[in-house]
Design a binder for these strands. Structure first.
Length: 619
DNA sequence: CTAAATATATGCTA
DNA sequence: TAGCATATATTTAGAA
């Protein structure tokens, strides 16, 4: 959707995920190649189209054709500033050509000449589609002073520009090639008209670009305050420093005024099909923090069927999360139904995944959640464990808000939604989590058991597997399946010789996974020692697992590189043996010291810190 | 949790 | 105005 006139990439978006949920509109303007400027040949055609009166003659009748061209030229000259335009066009052709390249000083000269010829008629020019293109090119190559001159010379014209179907491109170019100073001039010029602009067919696109791409934090605030109402505009400064909540908490009348104003704008925007505009998400974000119950109902009806359009922006996802939190069961059901169609895009999106977690946290009907989403999770399971965002959902189901995967800010944000939801959600949070994990673990067990191999294609899915295999809740839920997976894992580890690079032990996270299972505990950085798990003890993993591995390494026929000494002398596996040694060193029956011939250990490989350490430990 | 690595924002220069 | 340096935020790795 991204209804943007230009598409300067925003910093926070990385291409891989933006392409998924954001349906990008075709760029109307490209900053490097003047894609919006047709080559001179098809420009004539556009002229003809526009004039509408020139009828294409008989095909092949060249007389007719030259006659027409003459006519057209005359007509062009007759238009106001027609002769200047013809003159300037020649200069323009030179300015915009890249082949052969024109030296910089010559371009500046050309710019000055064009400016001389156009400055008097600039007001006329900008509203004509061909002349407006000339100014667009001029802006691109003009130096700082000239640009400022141009911007200033257009004072009083900006609203017209923004609402004109040709002028809007020029305005966007001005912003794009402008600097802080010139952009501020334009914003100041337009302020007072933002509410009109957002409702305008052309203007809305300009405002969206202006707001999202070309304004600073302060300028964004300046624009947003205008939507609150005339009296809050930044120039009438009483409210300059106050946030929307500070104003509304203090004064109920103002709260009503602001919320009504916002709802009016929101209503007209959504009815016009502008739900995807990011600026609207900002406005909605203001609105949802102050709306009353009745206004909420109204908003809900307005947005119905369009919730998915909100999930791919920061503000939009916040808005939808708040809506979810405040909704009743029936409304939530309708949101779920709506989002279901976009599941993968939703959960793999930088912001969308948070909306999904909000659903998990708020909806009491966990059966509905599971029924709705489990088929798609099953179908795409590995992909979901690997994606940067969707994996957090799965990790959340297992571990809650593990600080390893959730930043404090994110946790705070999610807790805010949970707080809001308490008016409608009745289920105890712990019970909800247990129910969800119980249900979704079915998918986990089934998928991991069936496709264990595939988890070793990517470090991130191995990490997920690690979290899964040290999760005591999951062990309690289905200990049989749990142990089955661990046994399968041991088989897999020895399926290929160590020297085979595709052996999974060469993935960095496999080492950690194996180490976790040998240790049956987690390193505690405070106490500087391993803290053992409670349920998952040495009978299940830990010592038992270590002995299983050790037996495999002792097996006959492992001369091709899967015996104890091979693992010690490989830098990828040596620390596994260190952990193994640590776990079993006191076990008299195993007597691990006797199994390792110290003289076989290569401690000359500086890359293999594990073998060096182990040799030291054995001495 | 903490330190290090990496990404992002901001400011400055030539 | 690019690009460089510096400050700041976010992500990632991870004991020996």
């Amino acid at each position: 959707m991204a209804p943007r006139v230009t598409s300067k990439k925003r910093v926070s978006e990385d291409s891989s995920d933006s392409s998924k949920i954001v349906k990008k509109s075709k760029n109307l303007i490209d900053e490097d190649s003047d894609i919006s400027l047709p080559s001179s040949s098809d420009e004539e055609e556009i002229d003809e189209d526009e004039e509408g009166s020139v009828v294409v003659g008989e095909p092949g009748s060249s007389d007719n054709h030259t006659e027409q061209r003459k006519l057209l030229k005359e007509r062009k000259l007759k238009r106001s500033s027609g002769s200047e335009i013809q003159q300037i066009k020649i200069l323009w052709e030179q300015l915009r050509t890249t082949n052969p390249p024109i030296p910089k000083f010559k371009k500046e000269k050309l710019c000055d000449e064009i400016w001389k010829l156009s400055s008097n008629n600039i007001g006329d020019f900008i509203m004509k589609h061909d002349a407006s293109r000339i100014i667009q090119t001029l802006i691109k190559f003009a130096n700082k002073e000239l640009k400022l001159k141009i911007v200033k010379s257009l004072t009083g014209k900006y609203y017209n520009l923004a609402t004109s179907s040709y002028g809007k491109y020029l305005l966007i170019k001005l912003l794009h090639y402008g600097n802080k100073e010139s952009n501020q001039i334009i914003i100041n010029e337009l302020s007072g008209n933002f509410t009109k602009l957002i409702k305008h067919r052309e203007g809305a696109y300009v405002l969206e670009d202006l707001f999202i791409l070309y304004s600073t934090k302060e300028q964004k605030l300046q624009i947003l305050k205008e939507f609150w109402g005339k009296e809050f505009s930044i120039f009438k400064n009483d409210y300059q420093k106050l946030t929307i909540n500070e104003i509304c908490d203090e004064n109920a009348d103002k709260k009503l005024t602001i919320s009504r104003n916002l709802l009016t704008i929101i209503t007209s925007s959504i009815n016009k099909g502008s739900t995807g505009f990011e600026i609207l998400h900002y406005i909605l974000n203001d609105f949802v923090t102050i709306m009353d119950d009745k206004q909420f109902e109204e908003l809900f009806e307005l947005l119905n069927e369009q919730f998915a359009e909100l999930v791919h922006t920061d503000m939009g996802s916040r808005v939808l999360s708040i809506i979810i939190a405040k909704s009743n069961a029936k409304q939530r059901k309708s949101i779920i139904k709506n989002l279901k169609k976009h599941f993968i895009k939703l959960v793999e999106n930088e912001y969308g995944y948070l909306v999904f977690i909000t659903l998990l946290e708020c909806v009491d009907d966990t059966v509905l959640i599971f029924k709705t989403f489990s088929p798609m999770i099953t179908e795409n399971f590995i992909e979901l464990t690997v994606n940067k965002y969707s994996r957090k959902i799965l990790l959340f189901l297992m571990n809650g808000y593990d600080s390893k995967y959730f930043s404090p800010i994110t946790i705070k944000q999610l807790n805010y939604y949970i707080e809001l939801s308490k008016l409608t959600s009745k289920k105890d949070s712990k019970i909800r989590h247990d129910e969800l994990l119980n249900k979704f673990s079915l998918i986990f067990f089934k998928n991991i058991n069936k496709n264990l191999n595939d988890f070793f294609n990517d470090n991130l899915s191995i990490q997920f597997l690690n979290e899964f295999l040290i999760n005591e809740e999951l062990y309690k839920i289905n200990s049989d399946a749990f142990l089955k997976i661990i046994n399968k894992l041991i088989e897999l580890l020895f399926e290929k010789p160590l020297i085979d690079g595709s052996n999974m032990v060469h993935m960095p996270f496999t080492t950690r996974l194996i180490k976790s299972l040998i240790q049956a505990g987690k390193w505690d950085n405070k106490e500087k020692k391993i803290k053992l798990f409670k349920e998952l003890n040495d009978e299940i993993i830990g010592k038992k697992f270590a002995i299983d591995i050790l037996n495999k390494l002792k097996e006959e026929g492992n001369d091709d590189g899967n015996n104890l000494i091979d693992w010690i002398n490989d830098k990828d596996t040596s620390f596994i043996i260190v952990a193994l040694y640590d776990k079993l060193k006191d076990d008299k029956k195993v007597n691990i010291k006797k199994l390792i011939k110290v003289s076989d250990i290569n401690d000359k490989d500086a890359d293999n810190k594990g073998s060096i350490l182990l040799k030291k430990l054995l001495k």
